[in-house]
Design a protein around this nucleic acid. Structure first.
Lengths: 264, 264
DNA sequence: TAGTGGTCTAGACCACAAG
DNA sequence: TTGTGGTCTAGACCACTAC
């Protein structure tokens, strides 16, 4: 409701502002450790997803919101930009900011299958099929920027949702990157485990494709032979720009697809 | 080269700054219509992709760059943020900004297949197989936020690269959105044609999956029956947040995959 | 003409990492 | 302690849209 432009223009501007301002005090907490622009972004997202801000509806101007909330315009702009990046708002100069139509999609469904499943309340499970250290092939060495022959950890995991096999995850990591706890890997995503070891994944580049499953993949995924699989080939980098993980994943396309929001 | 921190710390700081400053004048043009932060972002991207800024290399601090170039720190921050979003740079507080390893990937490969192919110099071609207006089914009406039965344009196109069939593109648009020139569609992307009609696509939500091709798809794509196809199901919105296009696309996975960069 | 978002400035204080 | 990026302020001018 806050920052929602009234659809009844006959109501005086000032009283609308005043009414909102009375609520504004509870909106953002300047003493919180959470940045103001993130607090405001979350408030706006809640308002959109709860329907208080209807699709097609216009927000108040950035300056109005800033005045109402007692923050600066750049802070408001940054909050709005967050939601533009998430595909929930669109802006036009000379016009204003409007809510994008359609259902409020949830998270990314891009980087962590485990977290995706958790968010969808799907009860994720992980079976570590194999965990070995082997010398880097030329291909691995090239991708991971290590010397050929240097030790690389290979993880091979079967990810399931509600007990049904969903994906085969093959990952390669330079052995120098981290010691991995197999126990932890059963109940968390690889990136979460890495974070616990001080490795922060910041960027990933990936390619999505499709092909016919191998016999092994079909067997492990509990599918008839020669079915289709969705594939993801990913290289992840940490916060110093160094490659820390190369992943080749195959998904059952009858039970999973990759969702994303694009902004121009 | 500009803004590259020297790897030889014995060189005095001041002379490094002076040397860069001499170049700085040609770097950005304050009278250009191109925003300063975009000019700087392009300069930095060129420096990274040309190898002047090596993977793992550190940039000068934001304040140093701002001083050198004679712009404010927020402008420099915004330029750097652009490249962080593109997955070329990573930042750590207390440490600095570093270049992400790996080959400089080109564009998005996400929204416009036609533009992707052009960028890769692949000579894209389009055959409009069908262009009809039909009443909206319940499914179309729900997605496009129109009344069931209201007129919807259905486009069915075969996209090829260097003469080889690559993808089947089926699109539905509310007839009120735009008049589409079939001639223009043969030599441009749908979104480019829409833009010419005053419709600006700002946001799109899509799901990527895979399945076995239908007989018709196999025939049109010039493939044996029952091969795998990569599928994209997309809903696009214009700059007022209104749904303007629903697309169902199928790709030959042996000749195309979907590449993207993710940032956390 | 009035109002909107887009860009830019010149400061400030802070949390964090490293020496 | 020093330097880094992270956040925030309080202005300013502009291009564009709608009336």
């Amino acid at each position: 409701m806050v920052a929602a432009r009234s659809d009844s223009p006959q109501r005086p501007l000032l009283s609308r502002l005043d009414r909102r301002y009375a609520v504004a005090g509870s909106l953002i907490d300047k003493n919180s450790t959470v940045p103001l622009y993130l607090q405001l972004a979350e408030e706006l997202q809640d308002a959109i997803q709860s329907g208080s801000l209807a699709p097609g509806g216009r927000l108040d101007s950035e300056l109005d919101i800033a005045t109402d909330l007692g923050v600066s315009r750049p802070t408001v702009r940054r909050a709005i930009q967050e939601l533009v990046d998430r595909g929930l708002l669109v802006r036009r100069r000379g016009v204003g900011t409007q809510v994008v139509a359609g259902p409020a999609e949830t998270g990314s469904r891009l980087l962590s299958l485990y977290d995706d499943l958790s968010r969808d309340r799907k009860r994720p499970g992980t079976q570590v099929l194999s965990s070995t250290t082997l010398p880097a092939t030329a291909d691995m060495a090239h991708r991971l920027r290590v010397q050929p022959g240097s030790p690389v950890v290979r993880l091979y995991r079967l990810r399931s949702a509600d007990g049904v096999p969903l994906a085969l995850l093959e990952n390669f990591l330079p052995a120098t990157v981290a010691e991995l706890s197999l126990t932890a890997l059963r109940s968390a995503s690889l990136y979460a485990v890495l974070r616990g070891s001080g490795v922060t994944v910041k960027v990933a580049r990936q390619k999505i494709g499709a092909r016919v499953a191998t016999d092994e993949e079909s067997r492990l995924l509990g599918r008839p032979p020669a079915e289709t699989v969705l594939t993801v080939d990913r290289l992840a980098f940490d916060d110093s720009g160094r490659p820390v993980e190369w992943g080749r994943h195959t998904y059952r396309p009858d039970r999973y697809d990759i969702a994303m929001t694009l902004t121009v």
